[in-house]
Nucleic acid binder design. Sequence first.
DNA 1: TGACGTCAAGATCCG
DNA 2: CGGATCTTGACGTCA
Length: 417
Amino acid sequence: MSIGYACLALGLPNSQLRSCRLQNASPDKLYSLIQNNLAALESIIDYNIDNGIELYRISSDLIPFGSSVALDLPWENRFAEDFSRLGQKIKNSQMRVSLHPGQYTVLNSPKEDVVRRAVLELDYHAAILDILGLDSSHKIILHIGGGYGDKESAKARFLKNYEQLSDSVKQRLIIENDGSIYNIEDVLEISASAGIPVVYDNLHNQTNPSPSFSTDAYWISQAGKTWKSKDGCQKIHYSQQDPDKSVGAHSPTIELSVFLDFYQKLPDPQIDIMLEVKDKNVSALKCINALSRREIKALEKEWSLYKYLILEKSPQAYQEIRNLLKNKDDYPVLEFYQIVERVFDLDMNTPYAANAAEHVWGHFKNQATKAEALVYKKNFDKFMKDETKLPALKRQLLRLGNKYKDDYLLHSYYFYL
DNA sequence: TGACGTCAAGATCCG
DNA sequence: CGGATCTTGACGTCA
């Protein structure tokens, strides 16, 4: 059983993917972007290994315009060593990676050209996994596509186009129920015709339930039957609705108690769970820590990342957590994250936020230049008088963190959540 | 024709 | 000039 996150890692320096506009996508530009992005991916892989995260979705933007402009570039040769090293790290650490072309990759379109480009997009995704040297348990997740007012013929078109895909794509492709057109029963039906493993997405099933309503556990066990041994263990997508946004929007973080309730009802506790959530790795670590009996060290590490954020919202909660972590033989994981979640719902409090900013500033005040101290003081006073917003103050602090290479601060969630 | 979703690039504004 | 903030892009479908 692994829990993972998609694409980005919050609070991880040097992990940013870069891209460019189509009109600027010269070979030199693309090569330099790819080089940057492979280094970013390596940072993320290393981070995952360090944190015991064994499930991860690689961003489709790894190679900018990978299925169009970059098709003519021999990036696989040029960066073969990097890919080989990355693939080794993934394999050595038992990590399982995936890729997920977005909603604009439509294999079942009636338009020939759209299908042609979908195939190229899938080939590009498979090429990444191929050159990483990863087997068919590392998957490519795809939605079925459009409905076109006639779902039955659209399903047939999906199957017909699927048959024309390369073996490399076929052995990795898995299909997912979507939030508006193809419900889990539709997807299971397509799977039955073509033998494609099914990824069940709980939130999509909420917004687009199948006509014969059933529980998550039931659909997960049905989807589980579509996985063969060469596919690796069954994988699902899990997300929660953002209460403040439109239907289907992913929540800012995973509410732990709701997740644990879901987890307990799983037919098989061994399945892999890909979280789809705004705070990415942050929620993945939360859920991993909650499900595994780790040492209190794991919570102390989390605390070092959360502390200024907690201090900013509630000095009381800050003390509460300090007390909670005093007993080194204890592992109060649920209590810890429940305090964190409760604090996140609190509104901004200017004196508290100012106090936290002062603590962060304390990291630099002995090394900052006079000019930097002056700017900080000015920003701080403006913030106290409500003339500037908190993010502006934090941005200056983050700049200082970068300049003075304060690793402790640079990883802190204070700047990223 | 705009909304959808995603993220960074690019453009523009400000001191 | 650097930094902050706003707009655009790239994709296909659907209302």
